[in-house]
Every structure is written in C-alpha cells, then in structure tokens.
C-alpha cells in the first residue's frame, strides 16, 4: 500500500489496518528526520495548511504546527478566541473564508462530536481531525500506538488498559479503535459513572478495580479527568478519585511485571499519576510527545500526497 484509503483523517474508525501500517512506516522515516541536525524537509513547499482550533489546545496545536513546518508547509493559525465565530459566523462560513485564500488542508479541533465529518461534507479541502468533542482524536491514538510499538516491538497481542474518564474522552475512543484494529486487547477502568454504559459493544472489557487492571496489562494509558466537559459531578472529590484510580510508584512496584505508563497530557500530577511515576523509566510520556510530531508529519504528508504531486 502506497497511499491512504481515505482523503481525510476524521477518525480511526474510518481507517484500515494497512493505513495505520503505512502511517507508521512513514513516521519512522520522519522520526529519523527530526533527529537530524537539520530537522526540515522540503516536501510540502506548495501546501498551505490552516490550523483551526475552536477549543483550547497547547500541545496538539504546537505538535501539528511543528510537523507542518518541518515539512515546509505554509501554515496559518486560527483560534476561536480571536475569531469571528464569537460574532455568530457558522463553521462552514469560517472555513470557506479561509479556504478561499487557497488553503489545501485544514487541521481542526472542535468541541462538537462529528464536526470534522460535517466539515468534510461541505468544504473542499483535506480535513484532519485534531479532536472533535468526545468523538475522536485520531492522531493522538496513532502516536500512542506508535509509542507502544516503539517500546514493545509491536501492538498486536499487547494488553492495554485505559484508565480514567472514558465517558468524555475522545482519546479513549480513538485508542480503542486503533488498538483493536491492530490486534491488541483492551480494557477500560475508571469510575463507573465515567464509563459509557454500552462501551463493551466496542469490544473492550470493563474493569472496575485499578489493581486488577494493572496486574492484567502490559500498558496503562492514564487519561486526564476532563472537568471542563462535565455538566455534573461524576465523583465526590479528586481526593477520592486518587484513592481509587490514581497510580503511584508503590502500586507499580508491587506488580509482578514492569508495565509501561502512558499519558496523553496534560498531566495532573498527583491525580492520575504521581510525580515519581510520571518521571520514572516506566513512563513514556515524553516519547509520546516526540512521536506525536513524527506521526503528524506522516499523516499530513500522506494526505497531502493525495491532493498534490509531491
């Protein structure tokens, strides 16, 4: 396979296994590039990319922007706080205005599930979903799988537990799709109030006990509690959350094996994981961040090559 089966990256559930393999092979190449003294390639010199962030983001936006710049694309940034969205402009109008300035590709983060899919049907550009509400965050899942592959050799057959707020998490959903597609086993663990009632229909198991989950897994992906997405209180206090679902070094050391700890960031130190876990050798959190740039370069490159002769 030399090109992606899709024209947009809207979610992992629209990808084939071969797409993921192609993205990873391409990312391997770019990871080598970004570790060179000159971290830049001229591949996307004729491509203009707009990063549209209708929701706050620091690392994802930075990661995309770096990926784009290292591919030599022209980049424009847009965030909702400084936009006409607040003046009542519709999403389609906002994007079409930007596209009429000859933009080829849109990277969009948006608070509403399905916003990327909606946009792909109404505007003429390649869309990369950088997170749409509680739906998907495909590049995060790709970089997570890529990091597991890098650390453990392959994803197939590995046991991964996703811990935390599954209900509000696009990272959880995309990770479930990506891991299942590659043949990993997946469990989710967290307060039952934050686990969708029908989550097992996605082929994952629910484990309510953190220790059991950790004993079972090869990798624990610790999600952030997304207070900003909660309309009501799903658990009584952070203190109690930590007691039930916080991972500290003592728990890790008491396990029979050395598991890999991941976190999509930003970390609430002392909540999902303690500082000594975050900074330990078992944590690959900063590898994830670095891989994020390489994986995003791969995705952008592969999608751009479908619209331009590179």
């Amino acid at each position: 396979m030399s090109e992606l089966s899709v024209d947009h990256l809207l979610g992992i559930k629209y990808l084939k296994k071969e797409d993921i393999e192609l993205i990873f092979q391409t990312a391997d190449h770019f990871k080598e590039v970004i570790n060179r003294p000159i971290k830049k390639v001229p591949s996307l010199r004729d491509v203009t990319i707009a990063n549209l962030f209708f929701e706050n983001s620091t690392r994802t936006r930075l990661s995309f922007e770096l990926a784009e710049k290292r591919l030599s694309a022209d980049v424009v940034n847009f965030s909702a706080a400084s936009s006409s969205v607040k003046k009542g402009e519709t999403l389609i109008d906002t994007v079409n205005n930007i596209l009429s300035m000859k933009v080829d590709m849109v990277v969009m983060r948006h608070p509403n599930p399905g916003a990327g899919i909606f946009l792909s049907k109404h505007v003429n550009a390649s869309i990369i979903n950088a997170g749409d509400g509680a739906h998907e965050h495909p590049t995060q899942a790709l970089l997570d799988s890529y990091s597991i592959r890098e650390k453990l050799g392959e994803v197939a057959g590995k046991k991964v537990v996703i811990v935390g707020d599954i209900l509000h998490s696009r990272v959880a959903l995309s990770n479930i799709f990506a891991l299942k597609l590659q043949g990993a086993e997946v469990k989710v663990c967290g307060p039952t109030t934050l686990i969708p009632k029908y989550i097992t229909s996605l082929g994952v198991e629910v484990e309510t006990n953190l220790r059991k989950a950790l004993e079972w897994c090869d990798v624990a992906n610790m999600l952030r509690v997304q207070h900003e997405r909660m309309d009501i209180s799903y658990f009584p206090s952070t203190r109690e959350y930590v007691q039930l679902f916080g991972v500290n070094k003592a728990i890790l050391d008491s396990l029979d094996k050395e598991i890999v700890v991941m976190h999509p960031g930003p970390i609430n130190r002392g909540v999902e994981i303690t500082s000594d876990v975050a900074d330990s050798d078992q944590a690959i959190i900063l590898d994830q961040v670095q891989n994020g740039v390489a994986v995003r370069m791969a995705v952008i490159y592969l999608l751009a090559s479908k619209i331009k002769q590179l």
Binding site: K13, P113, G114, D132, G133, A134, H135, E136, R170, L173, P196, K197, Y198, I199, S201, L202, D231, I232
Partner: peptide, 21 residues
C-alpha cells in the same frame, strides 16, 4: 436526559455523542 443528544446505546458510544437513556 441531561445534555443528551441521541439515544444512549451502541451508536452514541461509537460516535461520542451524549446519550439520552
């Protein structure tokens, strides 16, 4: 029902849409 948008079931889970049980 909360801020539910669609039926709470497999499809709402798949789409990340808030469900109305």
């Amino acid at each position: 029902a909360g801020n539910g948008q669609v039926n709470e079931h497999e499809m709402s889970t798949l789409l990340g849409l808030k469900g109305i049980p």
